Simulated assay, not measured.
Amino acid sequence: MTLRRSGEILEALAEVIENPDPHPAILEILDLEWTRDGFTELFDFDLPPFASYYLTIGPVLGGAPVDFLRGLLAAYLRPELQPAQPDSLAFLLRLLALLVHEESWERANAIFYEAMGPWLSTYARAAATFAPPGLRRIGSLLGEVHQTWQEEAPPASALPYLLRHAPPPPATDERKDLVDFLLSPVASGLILPRSQLIRITHQRELGMRPGGRRFSFESLLDASPETTLAAVLETVEAQLLWYRHRSSPIDQWWGERLTQTHVVVNALLKQAVDAGTPH
């Protein structure tokens, strides 16, 4: 893949990210084994394709990342063309494809680095890891897009704005803050989707109460804190491998947050073990 030839792939990826029933020709181009259930699991439950979900505490859809991107896009789009969700990955891929087609490289580089750069590489690795098997190639292709842009675009002299101004990780002394920390990628560097919680539940034979991701995670912490934290630590260690030998400032930023999370979870696990040890 090269930047000049990436337009078709960008358009095809945008289509499968936002359309539960993409045209068979697009599935053939991307070599996907498509199911609507897989689409729902990946994009509705596990990895919502919106920048704000990965760059806010909570996490939430909207907030400061959307405000920033709306302002950024105002320099490129007339008001009537502004999208309702400027942090949508599908929208950003389509915009990038258009700029590639027009050979508007300066604008394309700015959109890619500021709007997609802060989170795309991490999102791609998460999709390649956690997506249903027939859709994992979406993550691989997004990773190829990121790698191509990183290799061919002019190097940036600073981190993207959304990482330079990322919210600091919350303290972990209180239960709510701890859950916010572990479930917010921008805080912990950790991607902990619903499917991984279900996987932990089955592998560790735990009893997870059904519900939203936060509710289910809290139920695991309540029922089996030591086992749950041990499983979270394993997930952190697996994801640290995503950033090994990566030299880009963005990957280093994510790797540093995840490394600090490793320290935090290790300490929490020791506390849980000590609390459960008879004296």
Rank of each mutant, 00 (worst) to 15 (best):
E28Q: 14
E28L: 10
L27G: 04
D46Q: 12
F43E: 02
L10V: 07
L32C: 05
I9A: 12
L13N: 03
A51L: 12
L32M: 05
G38C: 04
P49I: 13
T40I: 14
R4I: 07
A14T: 11
D46Y: 06
E11H: 08
Y54L: 09
E41W: 08
I26P: 00
I26L: 10
E11L: 13
E41A: 15
F43H: 11
P24W: 10
A25W: 01
E33H: 13
E18F: 08
I9R: 13
A25C: 01
L13T: 07
D44T: 15
S6C: 13
A51S: 13
F50G: 05
A51Q: 11
T56F: 02
E33V: 14
T35I: 05
R4K: 08
L32Y: 00
P48R: 15
D31I: 00
R36S: 11
L47P: 06
Y54V: 04
F43P: 02
E18A: 14
A12H: 01
Y54A: 02
P22K: 05
A14P: 10
F43R: 07
L30I: 06
P48N: 11
P48Q: 07
P22V: 03
L47K: 10
E11K: 11
L30F: 01
D37C: 02
R36N: 08
E11M: 09
I26A: 03
D37S: 14
L42Q: 02
D37P: 00
L47H: 07
E41F: 04
F39L: 05
Y54M: 06
E8R: 10
H23L: 09
A51V: 11
L13Y: 03
N19H: 06
D31R: 12
I9G: 00
L10N: 02
P22W: 03
I29Y: 12
P24K: 12
I26D: 02
N19C: 09
I57A: 01
A12K: 01
L27P: 00
L55K: 08
R5S: 12
L10I: 10
T35S: 15
P22D: 04
T40D: 11
R36G: 09
R4S: 11
P20E: 02
A12I: 07
S52R: 09
D46W: 11
G38S: 02
I57K: 09
I57Q: 01
P20K: 08
W34Y: 02
H23G: 00
A14Y: 10
Y54K: 02
G7T: 09
T35E: 04
F39M: 09
I26R: 08
L27T: 05
D21N: 13
Y53K: 14
R5G: 13
P49N: 12
P24F: 11
